[in-house]
Simulated assay, not measured.
Amino acid sequence: MSDQTTEQTTGDRQRPLAGKVALITGSSRGIGAATAELLGALGATVVINYRSKVRRAEQVADKVRAVGGDALVVQGDLTDEASVTALFDRVGEALGRIDVLILNASGGMEKNMADDYALQLNRDAQVRALTLAEPLLHEGSRVVFITSHQAHFIRTTPTLPEYRPVAESKRAGEDALRERIPELAKRGIGFVVVSGDMIVGTITATLLNRINPGVLDERTEQVGKLYTVEEFAEQIRDAVLEPIPADNTKYVGDISFFTGE
């Protein structure tokens, strides 16, 4: 093997997403932004989706480009059908494909929202996003849905009252997306749920700790470790590259608290 071929092979291993398009919903901050930068470092063209803060999204795009990736910044409110339709139309026109779809955007603890906002965002919007993405997905594409242990196990393990509407709606979203696994599999499209505990540095964890002072410290004592935004983003990156796990679920951190095992 020539030195040039060896160098190319090494480069391919270091940049396995070169030439690939990754769309991350809600990627102008937090976990989504951190994941965007990690995928950019692997060579991906990352679609940075934001709802209203375009300058913040552009800053994420600059970071993606700085580590060797490329970026496209596209506005899109996942709860607004016209807005999210325009998002995927723009991606289709500009890039023509989606190799990795990361359904990261979520919420439900915001003030002054409709009573069913959590369900609109965490279930209905997730299903709509996947439906709109499907024409751009292809054999070898991967869909990743981000959730929490508190949501994933909500039917068997109670959670904080303030988080319960979010947990229930995210579990409803997970169930609705899982129903699509057979049809995705027929097209050779992988699907994986990445579930983690409270993530230090996220808005949700910060709000819960503000409402229940000390809850993050208490949670750390219960499970041994809470992941940071950056550490959890690394797990999402790995879920993009690794074989699909059993039951299409990648658990980040200890889950014995929820399973009793």
Rank of each mutant, 00 (worst) to 15 (best):
E134Q: 12
A82T: 13
Q150D: 09
E139C: 06
A86Q: 12
P158A: 04
A133P: 08
I146D: 00
A151M: 02
Q75F: 04
D80E: 15
A82S: 14
G140A: 09
I146H: 00
M109P: 03
S106M: 11
E134S: 10
L95V: 13
A129T: 15
S141I: 07
N122W: 08
L119H: 14
H152A: 01
Q75N: 12
L103E: 08
S148Y: 00
V127S: 04
E93Q: 15
H138K: 13
I98P: 00
R90K: 15
L160N: 03
T157P: 04
L78C: 04
S141Y: 07
P135M: 06
L160I: 05
G69P: 05
A114M: 10
V67K: 08
H149S: 01
E110V: 08
E134C: 03
V143M: 07
F153Q: 01
K111A: 14
L136E: 05
P135N: 07
S83N: 13
G96Y: 15
I98A: 03
L103M: 14
V73H: 01
D115A: 15
R97N: 05
A125F: 01
E110C: 09
N112W: 13
L95C: 11
N122R: 11
L136F: 06
M113E: 12
V74K: 08
A71S: 14
M109H: 10
Q150V: 02
P135K: 09
G68Y: 11
V91Y: 05
L78V: 05
L137R: 14
R97G: 02
R155Y: 05
R123F: 03
D116A: 09
A129V: 08
V144H: 00
D99M: 12
Q126N: 14
E93M: 12
T157H: 14
Q120E: 15
T85P: 01
M109C: 07
L160Y: 11
L78K: 08
L119A: 10
I146Q: 00
L130Y: 03
G140H: 10
D116E: 11
L72E: 11
T147I: 06
Q126R: 10
Q150C: 02
S83Y: 13
V143Q: 03
I154Y: 01
L132K: 02
R142K: 15
D70I: 05
Q120M: 15
T131K: 15
E110W: 06
L101N: 08
T131Q: 14
N112E: 15
R97Q: 15
A105M: 10
R128V: 07
Y117K: 08
G108C: 07
F88W: 09
D89H: 10
R128S: 06
V74L: 10
A66D: 13
P158N: 02
A129N: 15
V73R: 01
V91R: 08
E93F: 12
G96T: 14
N104S: 13
R128W: 04
V67D: 02
D89Q: 14
V74W: 05
R123Q: 12
D124H: 12
Q120H: 14
H152S: 02
V143D: 01
L132F: 04
G108A: 03
F88T: 11
Y117R: 08
L160P: 03
A129M: 10
R128E: 03
V73A: 04
L136G: 03
R142V: 04
D89S: 14
T147A: 02
V127T: 13
K111D: 15
L87K: 07
L160Q: 10
D99P: 11
V100W: 03
L119G: 00
F88V: 12
I102D: 00
D80W: 08
D77R: 05
